[in-house]
Simulated assay, not measured.
Amino acid sequence: MAQLDPPGQSALAPYPSAPPGDERSPYQPYPHYQHDPPVTPAPGVNGFAVASLVLGVIGGVLLSVIFGVVALVQMRTRPYRGKGLAIAGLVLSGVWALGLAVLIVVAIASGAERDPSGEVTDGGSVSARQLRPGDCVNDLEESNNVLSLPAVPCAQPHEGEVFAAFALSGREWPGEGHVLEKADQGCQDRFESYAPRADFDSFELFVLYPTQRAWTRGDHDVTCIAIDPAGKSIGSLRG
Rank of each mutant, 00 (worst) to 15 (best):
S125E: 14
L131S: 00
G111F: 11
A101E: 08
A109M: 14
V95L: 04
A101C: 06
G47H: 08
I58G: 00
F166H: 00
A49L: 05
A107K: 13
I58T: 03
N138M: 08
V45P: 06
F163T: 02
G82Q: 13
P41K: 01
R78D: 12
G44L: 12
R78N: 14
G160I: 05
V152E: 09
L98R: 02
G134I: 04
W96K: 03
A88F: 04
G84W: 13
G175L: 02
L92Q: 01
D122W: 09
N145S: 14
M75I: 08
I108R: 14
G56I: 01
V152K: 09
G56W: 02
P43A: 09
A88P: 03
E119Y: 15
V146E: 03
M75A: 11
G124C: 10
I58P: 02
G82D: 11
S125R: 13
S169N: 09
V45K: 07
I66W: 08
T77P: 06
R129V: 15
V65I: 15
E159S: 08
V69I: 15
V50Y: 09
V162P: 04
L147Q: 15
F67C: 11
Q156R: 10
V69K: 05
A71M: 07
A155N: 14
G59H: 02
A107T: 10
A109K: 11
R132G: 02
D122T: 14
V70W: 05
L92N: 00
G134T: 01
L53C: 04
E159K: 08
V70P: 04
Q130K: 14
A101F: 07
A164L: 05
L53A: 05
A97L: 12
G175V: 01
S127D: 14
V146L: 06
E141F: 11
S117D: 12
I104H: 12
L63G: 01
R81V: 13
L55T: 02
P174W: 01
P79C: 07
L62P: 03
F166C: 03
A109L: 14
N46H: 14
E142Y: 13
G60Q: 00
L168T: 01
V45F: 10
P41M: 10
L149W: 09
W96V: 01
P79K: 07
